[in-house]
Design a protein around this nucleic acid. Structure first.
Lengths: 244, 244
DNA sequence: CGGCTAGTTGAAGACACTCAACGAGCGTGG
DNA sequence: CCACGCTCGTTGAGTGTCTTCAACTAGCCG
């Protein structure tokens, strides 16, 4: 039995291909989230690679991701792009100090999102708690990401990225290898293109590809079909992240 | 008359050297902040380079900076350091999802800081508003910084850093050059060492030094005494940041 | 004066980037 | 059915930017 029944070999082939909520980015460590009780202004049901919000758009709403994944990115005038955050179920976006969004938000996976207007968001205690909780978590994630962008090598960045895709591992609440006897494997899906990973990790797509190849060559990874990757030994990969 | 009377040539020489609250990092665009009404658990009155909180310390309190500047940093196990955020009056820190601080906090300038325990912070509406407001602003700043770390060249990073030191310029609320006839000058103090700037910008101290030298050679900067620098033309420097 | 720290500058090297070719997978249309 | 075009990923060769290592200077304090 592998780490998580959701990702076991036996089940993998039986899973519907893309449109399954079980395939999240593994980032927020849950598959989906219950909808907050307040009446939402709107519900969004989006396919992958749909734009939710553009940098500079008016942003007077609170967006809560129920299912799927969203990426936030920023562009420099000459076209250089940085993907800032990858968000999953329970995460929020759309808030900003002034009334304009400072980032572009696009879906990475098919996503269900609820939208609350500013007034509803601010007058609901439950939503305020959610917002406060999630902002703290996002700030922590941004801190880690700053270390990655400022100080890590290409292979360390890619290893760190892959570790994020493994549920319940690598973070503060790392479960550790489940059993001594079983190989510490994990199957993950990488729903981002090399270009997107590169823009997230502050690299070029070629460098990302080379880092993947190197990890594969050295036995850390085995490519599956489509965008599936098997991490041969999660603990060993974790040692490549520079953080441990 | 220069942009801001605090930074005019005429006044500069008369100012007391370091221990003046007027010399903030210019980051939060204000000199100091009124103390929130709630009764604080503690008051801290710190010199420069004092440690407030270590990565991994218990963090059950909310820290509010009234005056001065604080830097948040993280270390990798092999000693690589990334300075994550530079905070000024009005900014907060110490919050984290779990009960441990994810960053180290040290003063950059002499600082006055008030500390509220978790319970006080959570039960005061005024403090909650402050926290929410500041967290949003910090997330925006972290987004910008991710772009810098992921996508900007060394000179662009240093130029962006210098622009942050100029009050009311470069950001969303950039005032623009004040007058057509006057040179668009600004005098700033750079209270960080080259090593600290390097750790903030994801570079080495030599690269930072070379970028400063290049900007000086090309007439963007004139070195003053101590850690003072004159930006010959703020608008022109802003074009070196890659953001405009 | 000597010792210390901070900053500058040069030379050589490493790591990631750029440019380019090529291959796999997939949908379209003849 | 296969050819075709398209996107995405891989890999190689050469280049460039930033790093590393090292020497040297300026300022400060005892």
């Amino acid at each position: 039995m592998s780490l998580d029944p959701r990702f076991s070999d036996e089940m993998r082939d039986r899973l519907p291909p893309k449109h399954d909520a079980r395939w999240t980015l593994g980032i927020s460590r849950r598959e989906s989230m219950d909808e907050p009780v307040e009446k939402a202004t709107r519900h969004l049901d989006l396919a992958a690679r749909e734009c939710v919000l553009d940098e500079g758009d008016e942003a007077r709403s609170l967006y809560v991701i129920l299912e799927g994944a969203v990426m936030l990115s920023k562009l420099l005038p000459d076209g250089r792009r940085q993907i800032i955050e990858l968000l999953g179920p329970g995460d929020i976006f759309g808030l900003s100090t002034n009334r304009l969004s400072d980032v572009t938000a696009e879906t990475v996976l098919p996503a269900r999102i609820v939208v609350y207007d500013r007034h509803t968001a601010e007058s609901s205690a439950a939503l305020q708690r959610l917002v406060s909780e999630r902002m703290k978590a996002q700030i922590c994630a941004l801190h880690d990401h700053a270390v990655l962008l400022g100080r890590k090598t290409a292979v360390e960045r890619v290893a760190t990225f892959l570790m994020r895709l493994v549920p319940n591992r690598g973070g503060a609440g790392c479960a550790g290898p489940l059993s001594e006897r079983r190989p510490d494997q994990a199957n993950v899906r990488v729903p981002l293109t090399r270009q997107e990973i590169a823009d997230y990790l502050g690299l070029t797509l070629e460098t990302v590809s080379r880092a993947f190849s190197q990890l594969k060559r050295e036995g850390f990874l085995v490519y599956g079909r489509h965008d599936e990757v098997t991490i041969a030994n999660v603990c060993r990969l974790c040692k490549c992240t520079g953080s441990h």
